[in-house]
Simulated assay, not measured.
Amino acid sequence: MGFGFFMESISVSNVGLRLRQYWVLTKPRVSQLAVFCAVIGMFLATPGVPPWGTVVAATVGIWLLAAAAFAINCLIEEQIDARMARTAHRPSARGDIGALQIIGMSGVVGGLGMAILYTLVNPLTMWLTFATFVGYAVIYTIILKPRTPQNIVIGGLSGAMPPALGWAAVADSVPAEAWLLVMIIFVWTPPHFWALALYRTRDYEKAGLPMLPITHGAQVTRLHILLYSVALLATTVLPYVIRMSGMFYLVCAVALGAVFIGYAWKLYRHYSDELSRKLFRYSILYLALLFAALLLDHWLPAWT
Rank of each mutant, 00 (worst) to 15 (best):
V187C: 00
L290D: 04
T125G: 03
V220E: 15
A66H: 06
P213W: 02
P149D: 05
A160F: 01
R83T: 11
I139K: 08
A197H: 02
A69C: 07
F280E: 03
V60K: 08
W23P: 06
A178I: 04
S31C: 11
L275N: 10
L294S: 04
E77T: 06
L100G: 12
W299R: 15
M183D: 01
L198V: 06
Q21W: 08
K278Y: 10
Y140E: 02
T59G: 04
L75W: 01
Q150I: 02
G262V: 04
Q150N: 11
L209F: 13
I97D: 02
C252P: 03
L287V: 09
A131M: 15
H216F: 13
A69V: 08
L198M: 08
D96S: 09
T119M: 12
L117D: 02
Q219F: 10
V49Q: 13
A258P: 04
I76Q: 05
V49I: 14
F36E: 06
A195I: 04
R243A: 10
V138E: 00
R29V: 13
A69G: 09
A258L: 07
L223A: 15
L256M: 07
K145H: 12
F43N: 07
W63L: 13
N151Q: 04
R18E: 14
M114L: 12
I242C: 01
G159W: 00
N14L: 15
M1G: 10
Y271I: 07
I139F: 15
S106Y: 07
L124R: 14
F5N: 07
I102D: 01
V170K: 05
G159C: 02
K206S: 10
T148V: 07
F248R: 05
T59R: 03
C37P: 05
V108Q: 09
D203R: 08
L290I: 10
M7C: 14
W188T: 02
I154P: 00
L65D: 00
Q219K: 12
V182C: 11
T201Q: 13
L19Q: 14
V170I: 15
G208R: 14
P51Q: 09
Y286V: 00
T119I: 12
T129K: 12
F186E: 03
L180Y: 12
G246R: 03
F280V: 02
L287G: 02
S229V: 04
L226K: 13
Y249W: 14
W52F: 13
L285M: 09
T119Y: 13
L294M: 14
L223E: 09
L223S: 14
L181D: 01
G155W: 01
R243Q: 09
S106M: 05
F133S: 01
L232R: 06
K266F: 05
L256D: 04
A66I: 05
I97E: 00
F280K: 00
T148E: 05
T148A: 14
G53C: 08
D203V: 10
V259S: 03
D297H: 07
V56C: 13
F3G: 00
